[in-house]
Design a protein around this nucleic acid. Structure first.
Lengths: 309, 309
DNA sequence: GGGGGTGCATAAGCTGTGTCTATGGCCCGT
DNA sequence: ACGGGCCATAGACACAGCTTATGCACCCCC
């Protein structure tokens, strides 16, 4: 109902350039050097930073004759800014990979969960080791990823386990935890313990369309535990965002990746419950054609993914 | 040496407006409604989204007569964008709190670690429960926070524990883990196990100035373990950013909050080591004058902080 | 089967923001 | 005393993005 998500971003942070510049000043020690690092003239940088200080209403910089340092408030703003700039960098890395369709040096196919939450950081790390590598990303469900890897149209794939089809080698690169979430107004939100699998299966859930890996994992877990086929969701929506909106609006509980609802749990717009007798953890695996080993940038990417887990 | 941090943000993601708009379209189901939510005309939104699609090089929207939905690629970009918009919102919340100096309904004093990594999210959650509350934030070291709380010039304070001075009530709201980090090129980076406390004390560390809470916590832990006074850092720098740059540049190891180096560890620009015989965990506490209870928005903020830990 | 409504695209004009070059002042080191 | 690094100011220019006005496609409903 409150749906704070639809509130547009406040003007002062729409454009991160000023904050990015602030970070460079913190790192390089002078406005002029930061300006050069950003390919702009020194007066332009000076003006931007001045405007930034006016927006924040506090002195962020200590301008000294031999250079410029950050004030305490400046350090604080810089640390917030760094998180924002980092997230924006992830976004940029993802977009770049999406853009370089088919012309990349590394062709990657990834299921949605991996592409959404893990891949951007890997790509940035990859750029650090192979600076000139162009990445091409195809995102699809696990079956599509497997097809592409087997066809050789990509160099490496990432799928939601636990099953790996024959003909592929695999390594686990992460675990993905599915969690049950409800609106804070839902009756379950105030129970001491979460529901049991039986109750969950009987509830009218909000869920994705049949092809979704998250839905498959849930159905599989329910069937294993209860021995009967899990019922279809009472409400089918086409995107994670739409599910979250529906749950927040009180249309029912949903099962989603923990990574997808971290912010909502932190903000209290969603409440997490543990299903007492159900293990909703699944593995995320890198896959490549059996008998080969990833080479070149694909090998580096695999190493990065393994290092991070 | 490589110092990827100084690279400026690529143009396409400097301005998050288009991505923010994309998120609103995903949530609201039409370009026109998203435009209204952002206080702009429908053609303006349409144009922005069109430019966004051109930048990404892929269709993100499926324009249907009764509305607009996101394509698969659109969903992917939206999920990346959401993380970026969220981080930018945190930044905005922090800046707003910094700006409302002394005129807020809730006056908060927070030590740097809390202000940097926890407070923005709390403030956003607070806005959800108390929409019209204006927050005023003062950031300083723990001693300054305590002084302000005792003087009654703030309604609630957040400090780095474990000691809480007399005259204050407190509740633990989080734990903060300090970690030892070195450059990947450092000899320690390839050791099976991290150094022992003794080695750490003998190493030439990069550290903050004497007043820093992080430095105090490290010195305290070393003194407890070794029984001697810990030596001053071989290189003193004035900001976390500068420390990270120094460590990356190979000037020596450093001990920092795990929250501060998450991205660098993920990117592989820093390597984390565990000091085998040293517990570097400290607690973060909310504090307020003894004998009272936080009231109004301060009470809500405390509840949010306790809920999140 | 034709209004009315909803939703998106295009066109034209304007305002404002951000940038550049050029210049001056300040402080430090030599 | 002088040169160099660093930052601020001034003036001019260019472009980006917004708004209003309008047209077209589709759906619902009477």
């Amino acid at each position: 109902m409150d749906s704070s998500a639809s509130r547009p971003l406040p003007q002062p942070v729409r454009d991160l350039t000023g904050y990015d510049l602030l970070l460079s000043v913190a790192e390089l020690g002078s406005i002029g050097q930061a300006a050069r690092a950003h390919g702009m003239s020194q007066p332009a940088a000076s003006a931007r930073l001045r405007r930034l200080e006016a927006e924040v209403g506090t002195a962020l910089l200590e301008r000294r004759p031999r250079g410029t340092r950050l004030t305490t408030a400046g350090e604080l703003v810089a640390s917030w800014a760094q998180a924002a700039v980092e997230a924006a960098s992830n976004l940029a890395a993802g977009v770049a990979a999406l853009r370089a369709d088919r012309h990349g040096h590394v062709r990657i196919a990834a299921s949605l969960t991996v592409a959404e939450y893990l891949l951007p950081r890997w790509l940035i790390a990859l750029r650090a080791t192979d600076p000139d590598t162009v990445v091409a990303l195809n995102s699809g469900n696990s079956a599509e990823v497997v097809t592409e890897v087997l066809a050789g149209s990509v160099d490496i794939g990432f799928v939601e386990g636990p099953d790996v089809p024959s003909g592929l080698s695999s390594r686990q690169v992460a675990r993905d935890e599915l969690v049950l979430v409800v609106s804070p107004a839902h009756p379950w939100a105030h129970r001491r313990r979460g529901p049991r699998a039986e109750e969950l299966a009987a509830a009218s859930l909000v869920g994705r369309e049949p092809g979704s890996g998250t839905r498959q994992a849930l159905e599989r877990a329910l069937e294993q535990q209860l021995g009967v086929e899990a019922p279809a969701p009472a409400l089918e929506v086409s995107s994670t965002t739409a599910i979250k909106a529906a749950v927040t609006g009180g249309l029912g509980p949903a099962v989603l990746s923990a990574r997808a609802v971290g912010a909502e749990l932190a903000a209290g717009t969603l409440v997490r419950l543990d299903v007492t007798d159900l293990d909703l953890t699944r593995t995320l695996c890198a896959v490549w054609p059996e008998g080969t080993l990833p080479r070149g940038p694909a090998r580096d990417l695999l190493a990065i993914a393994l290092r991070e887990q």
